[in-house]
């Protein structure tokens, strides 16, 4: 087993989520079990509507699971009261597809926000914000507003903001899906660098196998609210068992061969 007997950083057991809709109850998650080790980069891949976004929101309890247990960094979040839950969420950084930066705040003040919320002293906030902005290479853009930044720069502000409060877990919800391929590559490289530099556990939600292939150690394939397959990325590529996994692998290989063909053609 990959975890080698280590205590998992994220552990989901039997997580279910049902939504009440006008046309009846919809089951978005139907019993998900996952164990993600400390320092791991773990991918969750699935097609749209498979339940990926619901799953990641169940990890920081933005969505409260209808059943099952969620344990992050040794804390059982599903049993916490609302005050303790707010505290626990500060341990979990989150990066979004559409960045979700405050238009009214500069890059610097966006990164400072989680620290203000956590009640840090101004001097400590300033030190920490400059430190993370330097890490994501945005020191020079610190006084710009989001509207004045490129997509890649915005996402680096988003990542800096997620890292500011020194979380033990980073959740990335389709963090590169709104970006062009080159920018995607630079953001993936940044995530890898964060993982290596501070050993941060990273959970990546995506619908692109390329993201999984270039970033993740292990991956779980989710379909219709269930994990249909999981394991080390190389293994899944070599021997995809489920039809969905095969689709993802073929799609990626298809793209690879297209790029190769183009390269040869040139």
């Amino acid at each position: 087993m990959y975890l080698d007997g280590r205590i998992p950083m994220i552990e989901l057991s039997g997580v279910e989520k049902r939504f009440a809709t006008p046309s009846g109850e919809v089951a978005a998650l139907r019993g998900v079990d996952l164990r993600i080790g400390s320092g791991e980069i773990f991918g969750i891949i699935g097609k749209s509507g498979a339940g990926k976004s619901t799953l990641v929101r169940c990890i920081n309890l933005l969505e409260r699971p209808s059943a099952g247990r969620v344990n992050v960094a040794g804390r059982e979040l599903t049993t916490l009261g609302s005050g303790a839950l707010l505290e626990a969420r500060r341990e979990i950084g989150m990066v979004f597809q559409h960045f979700n930066l405050l238009a009214s705040r500069t890059a610097y003040r966006n990164v400072a926000l989680p620290l203000e919320l956590a009640g840090w002293r101004p001097r400590r906030i300033a030190e920490r914000v400059l430190e993370v902005l330097e890490f994501v290479d945005l020191l020079e853009q610190r006084d710009r507003y989001p509207a004045q930044l490129s997509g890649g720069q915005k996402q680096r502000v988003g990542i800096a903001r997620a890292l500011a409060a020194r979380p033990s877990v980073l959740l990335c919800d389709e963090a590169t899906s709104a970006l062009d391929p080159q920018t995607t590559a630079s953001i993936l490289a940044l995530l890898k660098r964060i993982n290596q530099a501070i050993g941060l556990t990273i959970l990546v939600i995506t619908h692109e196998m390329g993201v999984v292939a270039s970033l993740c150690d292990r991956v779980a394939v989710i379909e219709d609210g269930l994990v249909v397959e999981q394991g080390p990325v190389a293994e899944l590529f070599a021997q995809p068992r489920s039809a969905t996994t095969r689709d993802f692998v073929t799609a990626l290989e298809g793209m690879g061969s297209v790029t190769r063909t183009l390269r040869v053609a040139r």
């Binding site: 933005l62 839950l85 505290e87 969420r89 979990i92 989150m94």
Partner: peptide
């Protein structure tokens, strides 16, 4: 949602 994820009241 982002603020809630940061533990904002």
């Amino acid at each position: 949602e982002a603020a809630q994820a940061m533990g904002a009241t």
